[in-house]
Nucleic acid binder design. Structure first.
Length: 930
RNA sequence: GGGCGAGUGGCGAAACUGGCAACCGCAUACGCUUCAGGUGCGUACGACCGCAAGGUUUUGGGGGUUCAACUCCCCCCUCGCCCACCA
């Protein structure tokens, strides 16, 4: 109950009870419904308060404004005549209004228009707020809604805080699903994609987000992908793109190359058949040459630690040593990479990968040729699926060769086994079965010697016979001559020095990360802008090279012929994707573009002779790794973006997106940025200074991530029609932290809608006493100013759910009070980022403003006013709550002590006991220890 | 096997820097309102004991530090995600 009203003699004494905030400032029984008028007594009190407060705070007289209906003193409207909140009626209206007024079209102001408040990381006062652009899969799903509508709250808040916000939108429109859908529905991928873009644009508009549609980009637009091709050529000329043979996933049923992410548990994610490995010639980006910087530069980024760690682990840098062992009886060496040379005294065998260089080059030296051949053939045929099914079972074949361990002079048999991977390290492993589980398994299989060279804390020195005894962690070295007694870290460094001194090997660094295979033998992608010319290759020699240094062109072999690889000149870009009717993948693992006869044959840009285009297209991750740059200058015909515009917006202060891109899109974008920086084409080396991940919206019935392919139970369009976009937006914000996963809850949505209904009725509420309220009560004012503070801080720190809850709390507290127009306006401003349509309607139509609420400044709260609020002080005796009292803020310990010791309940609790300690935490709690 | 994250009412969740655990909302119950309601308003609502006042107890489990622990430290359990024979 609101006790304060009986004893207002000064502002100081206006008290809030310790009760729930919901009852604060509430006039019981007044103004609750249509035509209900408070009794004359309450009126009197209310008016008295207004007068007293007005006298006390005369600086706060409320400006009088004309209003069309609702609160106007000139026009009393009963609630029964009041318009009901009807989102469908107002939302489209305001969306159109904002678009007509170009409210969200960001101007390319030069930086530093106003001092930065939120972050020092982006340029001047400009703030590009980015959410990963969507793939036009057909329908906007609830996940999109969540991903885009919640950051819009932040964007609107920034805008109200004086930032020049750009919230761009576009489509990542190339990719395999378009082809699949096209094949299925007998429609061209381009038509399918464009249709989807049209539909999804409309759906995105229904969100009421502050998207800047004037900057829309689409990766399938030739004016966009011309620059994707241009960037490829820059990287090619810089030696950062090259062609090489590599193992790729091959689906024998669909006759196509699959990206790693299209292989699920060794099966094609489309047809389910077992995926094979094929060796194909592919275009690659040299991402590994930036591996160290991709790790090191993470430390300055404001990213989730989990994302940073995911990238570090993905890059997988390890520091070890390459050891060369002489092979007995022949004049060759075998090189192994190991991170644990400290265990080398326990090495008893060597294993090489079936497709390793060592096997390829030394086949004729193997004694048991037939067996080796058989094993190689088998392991090549074996699909990933079979390997997975086999589990960890180790197979292998002896080559007949022995390597000599220099440290022990032991002969180590060399085996071939497919548990060793050709692409890791040197493709050869030294077997230390005592201290590596895989080595132990292999040793057991082949009956090889196991030696213990590390003992753990338990000091167990017994021979190792069981897998549980294999020890990989910390310990002390034994049985290793001069390493004995050292811990494994000391031993590792000592033995590395020793091996290097002896010339037996060299320290080496290894990465898990491999170069980025960007070729796709698919139709629906950006053509790689290169031409193969036989003639150029024929006339080129060391005296008359066809390429100068800058061009970076190369000669390469293909099907036994020599070709010069000639980049398409800049003025001939874009190399447009030919309008193929038959875009089914070809049988010979060549791209469908090979079927485009006319397009394929070109005059060589270098020599003018007949030549052929590259038929591979690019991985769509190339398209999406630079799109944010294009947003700064989307219509530029001369450059991918002007330096001037990029300087105004980049690097990005904040990037919202899904955690599934931790190691894909985010790493690729960082690489492309660093590659362009290395060529002085941009002046920043990290694209995204800040990063926030969002969670997924799960299907409440299946518990799975919502997606088009799996069919979705919740159609956002239906929900918008039912509840309105504002309710949807607010619900998504309210559900909980942005980075968590949620199931759609139909009932909870209703709660948010109820809140907006109440907001609507509250602001529209006619005055009950036929009097213009001059100013609200101090309690109400404090409540509103608290909301300004709390809602603002919540949005600023991306705690959107807390922001909504603070707004609700505020309404609960003021709902049954009189509010001045200024008070109403403050509330509507706080609501504006969350529910932009209803806020605009209330702002302009009800409160009678002439310009958009979204152009308003975020209100400032009155700190002095907040200090006037009484706080609840908890009194504990021996950490048990004995009473709570309402006191003014900032009391000293002595003052509090006096009050507390005078308290009856406390006296009772203290009876006959001696106070040992008096703890006082200002404005919060006291604890008396007895 | 490795890495990361999370465990708080019937549910989504809140809790600033160690300071009243459960704000806000949903669901539920009861009352009022309504011709009717997926309506509106009000009250109650972690659990246990109690008519009540009040008491006891509670943040996955166990221990520790502290006047005070959801929060800090140690051990354990469960779940989720990512990578996975990485030498």
């Amino acid at each position: 109950m609101w006790r304060g009203r009986q004893r207002i003699t000064s502002i100081r004494q206006v008290t809030f009870t310790a009760g729930p905030a919901a009852t604060v400032g509430r006039f019981q029984g007044s103004g609750q419904g249509p035509g209900v008028h408070p009794g004359p007594f309450l009126f009197l009190i209310k008016n008295c308060i207004s007068v007293i407060v007005g006298l006390l705070r005369c600086q706060n007289t409320t400006p009088q404004r004309p209003r069309r209906f609702g609160r106007g003193a000139d026009k009393i409207v009963g609630l029964e005549k009041m318009k009901k909140y009807n989102p469908n009626k107002i939302e489209r209206k305001w969306q159109k209004y904002w678009e007509d007024k170009k409210l969200y079209e960001a101007k390319d102001f030069s930086g530093g228009k106003e001092p930065r408040k939120m972050t020092s990381s982006s340029r001047g006062n400009n703030f590009m707020l980015l959410v990963e652009f969507p793939y036009p899969s057909g329908d906007l799903h609830t996940g999109h809604w969540f991903a885009f509508s919640v950051p819009d709250i932040y964007g609107r808040y920034l805008r109200m805080n004086g930032f020049n916000v750009m919230y761009p939108i576009g489509f990542d429109a190339f990719g395999l699903p378009a082809e699949n859908a096209a094949i299925k529905n007998n429609i061209h991928p381009r038509d399918w994609t464009k249709k989807n873009i049209t539909k999804m644009s409309k759906q995105l508009r229904s969100m009421g987000a502050g998207f800047d549609w004037s900057r829309e980009v689409s990766t399938i637009d030739p004016e966009y992908y011309r620059w994707t091709q241009w960037i490829f050529i820059q990287l090619y000329n810089a030696g950062l793109a090259y062609r090489a043979e590599t193992l790729v996933n091959w689906c024998p049923n669909d006759k196509t190359v699959l990206a790693n992410e299209q292989v699920i548990d060794g099966k094609c994610d489309r047809c389910g058949s077992a995926v094979e490995q094929r060796n194909l010639s592919q275009w690659m980006f040299k991402i590994t040459s930036f591996a160290d910087r991709l790790i090191d530069d993470l430390k300055d980024l404001d990213w989730p630690e989990s994302t940073k760690l995911a990238q570090i682990n993905w890059i997988g840098k390890s520091e070890g040593i390459n050891i060369n062992y002489d092979v007995e009886g022949v004049n060759i060496q075998i090189t192994v990479y190991t991170t644990r040379p400290d265990t080398n005294f326990g090495a008893t065998f060597i294993v090489v990968a079936p497709d390793s260089k060592f096997v390829k080059e030394n086949k004729e030296l193997f004694s048991n040729e037939d067996e080796v051949k058989k094993y190689l053939a088998e392991s090549k045929k074996k699909s990933d699926l079979e390997r997975i099914a086999e589990g960890r079972k180790k197979t292998g074949v002896f080559t007949g060769l022995y390597a000599v361990n220099n440290l022990t002079d032991k002969k180590m048999p060399i085996y071939i086994s497919d548990f060793v991977l050709a692409t890791v390290g040197t493709g050869a492993v030294v077997g230390v079965p005592g201290h590596d589980v895989r080595d132990f398994e292999f040793a057991q299989e082949k009956g090889l010697e196991v030696i213990r060279v590390v003992v753990g804390k338990d000091d167990d020195t017994s021979p190792i016979t069981k897998i549980e005894q294999v020890q990989e962690g910390a310990g002390i070295i034994v049985n290793s001559k001069f390493l004995n007694g050292l811990d494994i870290h000391e031993a590792t460094e000592k033995i590395k020095d020793y091996i290097e001194e002896k010339g037996w090997g060299k320290r080496a660094v290894n990465y898990r990360l491999h170069d980025w295979v960007l070729s796709r033998q698919r139709y629906w992608g950006v053509p790689i802008p290169l031409v193969f010319c036989e003639h150029c290759a024929a006339i080129s020699n060391s005296q008359f090279p066809v390429f100068n240094d800058k061009e970076g062109g190369t000669i390469m072999e293909r099907n036994g012929k020599r070709y010069a690889v000639v980049p398409v000149p800049e003025n001939e870009l874009p190399v447009k994707l030919p309008p193929l009717k038959d875009f089914m993948p070809a049988d010979d693992s060549r791209s469908p573009l090979a079927k485009a006869g006319k397009w394929l044959k070109v005059k060589c840009p270098k020599c003018g002779q007949p030549a052929e285009r590259e038929t591979d297209t690019m991985d769509t991750f190339v398209d999406s790794s630079w799109y944010y740059m294009r947003y700064t200058d989307p219509k530029n015909e001369k450059e991918f973006a002007s330096q001037e515009n990029m300087a105004k917006w980049l690097p990005l202060p904040l990037y919202f997106g899904g955690a599934e891109h931790n190691t894909m899109h985010l790493l690729y974008s960082r690489f492309i940025t660093k590659a362009l920086r290395s060529q002085n084409l941009i002046d920043f080396s990290e694209p995204f200074l800040g990063r926030r991940n969002h969670g997924f919206i799960m299907d409440s019935t299946t518990g799975q991530k919502m997606s088009k392919s799996k069919g979705q139970a919740v159609d956002p369009d239906e929900q918008v029609a039912k509840y309105g976009a504002d309710t949807m937006r607010m619900y998504f914000a309210f559900m909980g932290p942005y980075d968590q996963n949620y199931a759609w809850n139909f009932d909870s949505v209703l709660g948010v809608r109820r809140f907006l209904d109440r907001v609507w009725n509250f602001v529209n509420k006619p005055t009950t006493d036929n009097q213009q309220p001059t100013t609200e009560s101090p309690e109400v004012r404090i409540t509103i100013h608290k909301a300004i503070k709390n809602v603002g801080e919540a949005i600023k720190s991306h705690r959107f759910n807390v922001g909504v809850s603070e707004l609700m709390k505020c309404l609960n507290a003021i709902e049954h009070s009189e509010l001045s127009v200024v008070g109403c306006e403050l509330f509507v401003k706080l609501l504006a980022p969350f529910a932009p349509h209803i806020a605009e309607e209330l702002w302009m139509e009800v409160l009678g403003n002439k310009t958009s609420v979204h152009l308003e400044k975020w209100p400032e709260f009155n700190e002095a006013l907040l200090l006037e609020e009484l706080v609840t002080l908890v009194i504990q005796v021996n950490s048990r709550v004995r009473d709570t009292i309402s006191v003014r803020q900032g009391l000293s310990e002595d003052e509090v002590k006096k009050i507390v010791l005078a308290n009856e309940k406390i006296q009772k609790a203290l009876e006959g006991k001696e106070i040992k300690k008096f703890i006082y935490i200002q404005d919060r709690l006291t604890n008396i220890v007895v």
